[in-house]
Simulated assay, not measured.
Amino acid sequence: MSSQHETLIEAKTVSISHRGRAVLQNVNMAVRRGEIVTLIGPNGAGKTTLVRVMLGLLKADSGEVARLPGLCIGYMPQHLTLSENMPLTVMRFLAMAGNKSKLSMQDVLQELDIEQLADYPMQRLSGGEHQRVLLARALLRQPDLLVLDEPVQGVDVTGQAALYNLITRIRDRFNCGVLMISHDLHLVMANTDQVLCLNNHVCCSGHPDSVSQHPAYLELFGTAVQAELAIYTHHHDHTHDIHGNVESHHQEHDHG
Score class of each variant (00 low, 15 high):
D184E: 15
E35M: 06
E6T: 01
A161K: 08
R141H: 13
F221Q: 03
T223W: 00
Q106T: 12
R52M: 07
D119K: 13
E252W: 11
D193A: 09
Q123A: 15
N26Y: 13
Q194F: 04
N245T: 03
V14N: 07
L103V: 06
S17W: 05
V27N: 15
V147M: 11
T192I: 10
D184Y: 06
S3N: 08
I114G: 04
N200E: 10
R21N: 14
N28K: 03
Q110D: 02
G256M: 08
D61Y: 09
L71P: 04
A60S: 14
L8N: 00
L103I: 12
R33M: 01
E252K: 07
M86T: 14
L88A: 03
V14T: 10
C176Y: 06
G177A: 01
A190S: 14
C72S: 12
Y232N: 03
G244C: 04
V37P: 06
V155Y: 09
V155S: 06
N28E: 10
K47G: 11
S210F: 02
M91P: 00
D61A: 06
V195R: 05
L50I: 14
M122T: 07
H240T: 09
H5W: 02
M1K: 06
H238Y: 15
Q160G: 04
D61N: 12
L80E: 13
I114M: 04
L135K: 07
H236P: 02
I73G: 08
C203D: 05
V27C: 15
Q142D: 15
I36P: 01
D144C: 04
L50M: 14
L220V: 02
E150V: 13
H236Q: 09
L198K: 08
I73H: 08
Y120A: 05
K12I: 12
Y120W: 10
L198Q: 09
A45E: 12
N28F: 11
S62E: 15
R52C: 06
Y217Q: 09
F174A: 00
Q251K: 13
Q226I: 06
S210V: 11
H214W: 13
L39Y: 04
V23G: 06
G56A: 13
L117N: 05
